[in-house]
Amino acid sequence: MAVILLLLAIAAVVYPLYFVLIASISDPNQIYEGNVWFFPQGITFEGYQRIFGDIRIWQGLGNTFLYTIVGTAISVTAILCGAYALSRKDLPGRKFLMLIFIITMFFDGGLITKYLVVRDLGMLNTMWAVVLPGAVGVWNLIIARSFFEQSIPDELREAAQIDGANDFTFFLKMVLPLSKSLIMLMIMIHVVANWNSFFDALIFLNDDSKYPLQLVLRNILIQSDISSTGTTGGDVASYAAAQRIAELTKYAMIVVSSLPLMIALPFMQKHFTKGALIGAVKS
């Protein structure tokens, strides 16, 4: 019973993705006629060729790489340092400081004032508007703090202090090397989040050349902006053909944009489950 139910669930999750994969290399006419079900029909790589010839995709990919690296570095640094300080029971005002962070989980200023603040900071249309406004998630801060509380014993610090280590050196030379799994988890959470985010870019950027991949994808996949296919006017037949190619490009684009994370998933899985558990223990 259980096995059958789960096999059905697995099929429901996998089939749409599998279909997108085979559709991306199938002749679009075969897709239109409903002949593609389990195997690609009339194999073509035109969709992929078009993507790789599309400057917007490359630009978006480049921007995404930049934003992901910078954003992850900022977030992980701020979270690790902050969470360590908050994990120290001898931090004066610890409870109050923690409260400052917790409050933001239950109440926030909303989209409009966030936009106005970013504008007043002069960050509109810059990378900082994409990278900074969501940099420190309180939930991640709490996960990191619990990790430090559980895994860095007070005795270790006291011993290090006797040996003359101050808080900086202790944090850098002892705490961080002991927290590799936490650091991995934090890096992965932020890489995935930065890689997948589009909304901040949508509201804060207005320069096409700064768009991250997800925003480019949104404009092509969802807003059906097919200007790159290069057909202007012409007869109905060529228009229909262009549209079919555009459709094919969409399948290929979905594959190209989600494949990197899907391939990395098995390697990241261990860390993510662990993270979900630290979070669960805390709640």
């Binding site: 300080a85 400052i100 926030d108 200023g109 004032t113």
Partner: peptide, 16 residues
Amino acid sequence: LLAPALVYVALFKYWP
């Protein structure tokens, strides 16, 4: 160590 996170919430949470 806590400063970056505090500056962050001040700017992007409490100011809004």
